[in-house]
């Protein structure tokens, strides 16, 4: 059973979003997503200062099984990317919601988080996907 922390927001493309105190968000991929991908071997993080639109492919996670795009769950500016993933992509597998974070984004519109799913909705989505 996948771990879906209740204090995070989620995109249907399997990214999680944590709201930080300073008007920025931290983004990663969900435990469900890392489990489906299998062992990660490369992570390509976005350039800092890049402006991103919600739904735009901004990072790539490549596993033993497949390469997969990571989408910006919100519009804004990338202010940080997890440099540790360069040498330790497996952090996404071992700690998807912690050390395996991918990027931080400064939101264009603080209300944009309202568009995302809460933990209950996301859990329902992945349950339906597993059954489908």
């Amino acid at each position: 059973m996948s771990n879906v922390p209740s204090d995070l927001k989620y995109a249907s493309s399997h990214e999680w979003v944590r709201q930080d105190d300073d008007g920025t968000v931290t983004v990663g991929i969900s435990d469900h997503a890392q489990d489906a991908l299998g062992d990660l071997v490369f992570v390509e993080t976005p350039e800092i200062d890049r402006t991103v639109e919600a739904g735009e492919a901004v990072a790539v996670v490549e596993s033993v099984k497949a390469a997969s795009d990571v989408y910006a769950p919100v519009s804004g500016t990338v202010i940080d990317a997890n440099a540790q993933l360069q040498d330790a992509p497996e952090l996404v597998n071992t700690d998807a919601y912690g050390e395996g974070w991918i990027m931080r984004i400064k939101l264009d519109d603080p209300d944009a988080l309202e568009e995302l799913m809460d933990a209950d909705a996301y859990e329902q989505l992945i349950t339906e996907e597993d059954d489908g």
């Binding site: 062992d39 033993v64 497996e90």
Partner: peptide, 9 residues
């Protein structure tokens, strides 16, 4: 079985 947790391990 495709893996038992980690293919690389």
């Amino acid at each position: 079985p495709v893996n038992y947790g980690s293919q690389i391990k």
